[in-house]
Amino acid sequence: MSVRQAVLDQMRIVAEQQRKTLKPLADDLLLLESGLDSLCIAIVVANLEDELGIDPFAGGDIEMPTTLGEFIALYENAAR
């Protein structure tokens, strides 16, 4: 499974668990307007770390991505 797919899957799983309605997942979608609140996004990050073994924020002082595309790119870069 690609990193992109894993990220999108986790967003859908967490949205389902938290009963949030996701907007269509496009790269230019603002994360905080995706339908997920800050808790949901934080859970997505935690779950991705557990499932992929990737923590792109581990280096510290990483600016939070604002769009979904930036969020996915952060993980794809960390996976390389």
């Binding site: 800050s38 996004i41 934080a42």
Partner: peptide, 25 residues
């Protein structure tokens, strides 16, 4: 919570989204 590291990450990300600032070392 299976791994404390991911739980702490969850707290830090949520805090950063609230304040707009990452936690300094």
């Amino acid at each position: 919570v299976m791994r404390g590291n991911s739980y702490v990450r969850q707290l830090l990300v949520q805090a950063q989204l609230q304040t707009g600032q990452p936690l300094a070392p």
